[in-house]
């Protein structure tokens, strides 16, 4: 474990907590894409298949349970909770996430570390996580006023993977044979997708104006 990875995990945890806080306290999911939340639930479900077979550490297991539990409960809230679901913007959140899942699955069948079920599912989860934010970014472009919690949620979600990139660089230089192109390329693409969001988020923070993405 290194400081970059710990910072990344904590930032990721914060993003999930910010979202749960928003949904649980003000019972609103305005501006949040259910499609992205469903994709994240699928990412964790396919990433953590080994949660009960390969024990890494208490920290690792607890974090996996938190990410699995929170992502599925957020989807449940947005689909089932009578108050929360009312604030869900179904008309605007129209990204057909099936067109993200299928290419990622096909790519995972071709590009993987080993052609076994677990390895293919693992590669699939990395490719899917890289693009899972797209429905959310599209929704942000459409909804004019982005509330602070939603902006913070997306920012933290993007920042966590950026920390992971520093973690991979650190591990590459400190651990022999630590080379994982699938993880690195997926993580880089994922972070680049946030580039313009980061740009507008930073500017809105600098000029102290409401976050507003150009149409």
């Amino acid at each position: 474990m290194n400081i970059f990875r710990l910072a990344g995990d904590m930032t990721h945890l914060m993003s999930v907590l910010v979202l749960l806080l928003k949904i649980h306290t003000i019972k609103s999911c305005a501006g949040i894409s259910l499609k992205t939340q469903e994709l994240y639930a699928l990412v964790f479900a396919t990433r953590y298949l080994d949660i009960f077979t390969d024990f890494i550490s208490v920290y690792n297991t607890i974090m996996k349970l938190i990410f699995l539990g929170s992502s599925f409960s957020i989807v449940w809230y947005m689909r089932r909770h009578k108050l929360v679901r009312r604030s869900y913007d179904k008309e605007q959140d129209t990204f057909r996430h099936f067109f993200l899942v299928l290419p990622c699955l096909l790519l995972a069948l071709v590009m993987n570390e080993k052609f076994t079920f677990k390895e293919v599912m693992w590669a699939f989860s990395l490719y899917l996580e890289a693009v899972a934010i797209l429905p959310q970014l599209v929704l942000l472009q459409r909804t004019k006023n982005i509330d602070n919690l939603t902006g913070q949620y997306v920012f933290l979600l993007g920042a966590y993977r950026a920390f992971y990139i520093f973690n991979w660089i650190y591990r590459y230089f400190t651990e022999p044979h630590y080379v994982h192109w699938i993880t690195w390329i997926s993580g880089l693409v994922q972070t680049l997708l946030y580039a313009d969001f980061f740009y507008y988020y930073f500017n809105s923070w600098k000029n102290n104006v409401k976050l507003h993405l150009p149409a």
Binding site: D54, I56, N60, F67, T116
Partner: peptide
Amino acid sequence: ADESFVKDEL
């Protein structure tokens, strides 16, 4: 070892 690398990252 043929075991695929241990996925120690989240």
